[in-house]
Amino acid sequence: MKTSSIHLRLWLAAAVAIPAILATGCDSHDSVASSPPALKAPAPAPQAIHAIEPAKVPYRTTGPLVAEQQSDVAAQRDGRVVSISVGIGDRVRRGQELAALDDRALRTAVESHTAKLDSLHAQVREWESEEKMDSADLRRADQMRASKILSEEGWEHVKYKLDEVTSEVARYRADEAAAAADLKTAKLQLEQCHILAPFAGVVGRQSLRLAQEVKQGDVLFWITAEAPLRILFTVPESEMASYPTGAPLDLTSPGYPALHQPARVLRVSPVVDPASDSVQVIGALIHPSPLLKPGMSMQINPALSSEGHTAQ
């Protein structure tokens, strides 16, 4: 009986508590639903994006260093090499002998033609002297003929003798001229046996050896002057504005990374090559470094100003 009374009290307490809890939950829900919505922060205004154009990269190219005087030295006649006076790297002066071909036969020919010319020259002088005497005889014969002292037959004899001597003088003079021409040819051929430097410079290549048989036109040496040095290169037509006449250049070499050789555009071809759409440019080096040699390949860069723009 006592236990039943306890259960009854617990049931009544629960019946009272449940409605109160439900009422509290409803009030809380209404409070949340009635609260005003939170204000959102305004979205930031979009910023204008400016496109940054990349700086134009200066056009760079490569080209060889050249000297204004460079030349192949070829054999001017057939012959056998009997002496070589210089080698690669030797400096030579203008007219210096580089090599020689066998000239013994030609020296003999020159001596023979010289002797023949001397003989003919002496004979011409003798005939000219006789011509002078016969001319004087004819003048006297003319006077004697006019004075009726000399017969017509005698006068004709004097005249015929002078004509004969004059003819001999002309013949020997012609022989003398022919002998002089033969001697000149022989001397020229003799000179061609001696290979000479066409200008002062340095021997860049050598293509002969002792006792070698060479033919006319065979290249035996390549000579180049050492100064002034020029840089030779081509640029596309679209880049011509970067290389006007007088524009400064900066030359570099893979062999000497620290070297920056100043130069300036000396000449620009007025003609565009239609096959490559390019123009040829020649630059002059300013106080060339002694490290630079003709034939070296250089990279050509337009010189930049302090602001990083191509200097004009």
Rank of each mutant, 00 (worst) to 15 (best):
K161E: 02
S34C: 00
S31D: 12
D90N: 11
A303W: 02
T166Q: 13
A45C: 01
P294L: 10
S306R: 10
A13E: 04
L39A: 14
K2T: 13
P19D: 08
L304I: 02
I88W: 06
A241F: 14
A51W: 11
E239K: 15
L150I: 05
A48K: 12
I49H: 09
E111R: 08
T185D: 15
T61S: 13
L208V: 13
S147I: 00
A41D: 08
A122S: 11
P58F: 08
M298Q: 02
A13L: 14
A99Q: 07
L285E: 01
V271C: 00
S83T: 14
I300E: 08
G79D: 08
A14C: 11
V124M: 06
P19K: 09
T114Q: 11
R93A: 15
I49Y: 10
T310Q: 13
S112W: 04
A43F: 05
K184T: 14
H50V: 13
P42M: 12
L22R: 02
S129R: 02
A41N: 05
D78R: 13
R139D: 04
S34D: 11
G63I: 05
A170W: 09
E152D: 10
A41Y: 05
M144H: 00
A197W: 14
L251S: 03
S289R: 13
L210W: 04
R267P: 00
E68P: 06
A115D: 13
C26V: 07
S207A: 15
R60F: 04
V86W: 07
K2M: 13
L39V: 01
A33F: 03
A178K: 09
L304W: 00
E156K: 08
T185N: 15
P290W: 10
S207N: 15
K293L: 14
A197L: 11
A48P: 03
S28E: 07
P46Y: 04
G283V: 03
H29W: 03
V265G: 01
L220P: 04
A181P: 03
I286S: 02
A177Q: 15
G283Q: 01
A179R: 01
D27Q: 09
A263D: 01
R267Y: 01
D142I: 02
R125P: 00
K116N: 13
P244M: 13
I223G: 08
P262K: 04
A178M: 13
R267I: 00
G308H: 01
E213K: 14
A109K: 14
M1L: 07
A48W: 03
L208K: 11
I300M: 02
T245P: 02
G89T: 09
T3F: 14
G95T: 12
D102H: 10
K159Y: 05
I49T: 15
V202L: 12
R60C: 05
Y172H: 08
R209A: 15
H260Q: 07
G154K: 03
V235Y: 07
P294T: 03
Q261Y: 02
D72V: 05
R9F: 10
A174H: 15
E213C: 05
A100L: 07
V92S: 06
Y160R: 08
Q206S: 14
A20K: 03
E168F: 06
A67D: 10
R145G: 03
A258F: 07
T234V: 07
V279T: 09
A225K: 04
V165D: 10
M298A: 04
D163C: 00
H309G: 00
R173V: 06
S147P: 00
S289Y: 07
V86P: 01
E153D: 09
V16I: 12
L232G: 01
Q261M: 02
R173G: 14
Q216W: 12
